[in-house]
Computed example of a mutant assay.
Amino acid sequence: MTRALSLAILLAALPTRAADPPPRLFEHPNLFAWCIVPFDAKKRGPEERVAMLKQLGFTKYAYDWRAEHLPTFDREVGLLKQHGIELTAVWFPANLGADARALLDVIVKHKVTPQLWVTMGDPGGADQAAKVANAVKVLRPIADEAAKFGCKVALYNHGGWFGEPANQVAVVEALKLPNVGIVYNLHHGHDHLPRFREHLAAMRPHLLALNLNGMLPDGEKLGKKILPLGVGTLDLKMLRDIAAGGYAGPIGILGHTQDDAEARLRDNLDGLAWLRPQLAGTPAGPFPKLRTHPGRP
């Protein structure tokens, strides 16, 4: 018997550890809370917000802010680390000015590596090529700076030219940087619904995060841009399309109203829990009673 064969037999006899299962896309460990800092009727501070996240079982969190929140960002990140909550992403300016530097200083201090979510308006230019080039000119310094600290930059769709998936893909591919991708928001994608599968397929190689929202046809035009999950008539279809499209990254649960942020997050979690079994073909049970919305029509 050769030495190599003997070693192979010995290794085969050793007990093996099963590989960890991949995270389930719409299960709680893969979810993060988003849009709950300026969007909160109770105007929680860092301590109250982190306590709320713990109470709701979130282990991931994306930070949005206004100028008045920046002085407490350092304290908030410290509390997140203390309680084992990942800072998944930070809303980030389309520049490296004073606010950006304040955010980066805290990120570096605490040795965290959140995605930096950047949006911008029309970058200007006479044609598509010029617009892409101008967007690249704005974003490259941010991406280069983020790379120094191990952070990725995600282009955030927020309407207009920059919010179109095809344009974002073009910008990412023009940048050719390994730390640049896309975060896609359903609540800013109502006009994309007729071609959502096509857009998702184009974005998927670059998709770093995806934020859910209750969706229905022409929802934004009807004044129903932000809905709890399960209320939208297209929600089950959207979840199926996302799962079938091969996306496997983190999933955002939206606040983004002036309700109590905890109540709104609970409504979305309950709506998602109602939808999840239906993905496997289980008939829908009773719809949950919501706290911030009348419920399904």
Rank of each mutant, 00 (worst) to 15 (best):
H192G: 05
H69R: 06
A8D: 02
K60N: 11
P286K: 13
L275T: 02
N213D: 10
L186V: 03
L5S: 12
R240V: 00
P294V: 09
R24D: 14
R101H: 03
V138C: 06
K111L: 13
V106M: 04
A244F: 05
G230D: 11
L79R: 05
R3V: 11
R197D: 04
L275G: 00
P15D: 01
L200N: 02
E86F: 10
A41Q: 10
N268Q: 14
G124T: 00
Q168K: 05
A130E: 11
A129C: 10
E76G: 09
G84A: 04
V183E: 12
K54T: 09
L25Y: 00
L222G: 05
V37N: 15
A243R: 15
P297N: 02
P286R: 06
L210R: 00
K43L: 10
L139E: 13
F58C: 01
F149Y: 15
L87W: 06
I182V: 06
F162E: 03
A273N: 08
G84F: 04
L290Y: 00
L56Q: 07
G249N: 10
P15Y: 01
N268T: 08
D20E: 15
R75L: 06
I85E: 12
A261I: 07
V108E: 12
R296K: 15
V37W: 14
G121K: 12
Q128N: 15
E76I: 04
N167S: 12
A130V: 02
R3Q: 13
A202Y: 00
L155R: 03
L265C: 14
E47V: 15
L208K: 03
K289N: 02
N134T: 05
D105K: 12
L239Q: 00
L186D: 12
L269Q: 10
G57V: 09
T59H: 01
T16E: 05
V37R: 15
K54E: 01
V77G: 09
A67P: 02
A89E: 07
P178G: 03
G84P: 08
R66C: 13
M120E: 11
G295C: 08
V77S: 13
P283K: 14
K225Y: 11
W34S: 15
Y156N: 10
N95T: 06
L193N: 01
A94R: 05
E27T: 03
L87K: 06
T119S: 14
G255Q: 14
A33P: 07
P294R: 08
W91G: 13
P123K: 09
H206Y: 15
D235S: 03
L7V: 13
L79H: 07
G281K: 05
G78M: 04
L216I: 15
K137F: 04
L14K: 02
V108N: 10
N134C: 12
G232A: 01
A201Q: 13
T233L: 13
N179T: 09
R266H: 13
P297H: 03
N179S: 07
L103V: 11
A280M: 04
L254A: 07
F58N: 01
A135D: 07
H256V: 01
H83E: 06
V183T: 08
G181S: 10
V118D: 07
K289A: 05
P250V: 15
P288F: 12
R101G: 12
R101M: 11
K152D: 08
Q278H: 03
D218C: 06
H110D: 09
F92K: 07
M120K: 12
E145K: 06
L210K: 00
L155M: 07
R296P: 06
K81G: 11
A243C: 15
D218P: 11
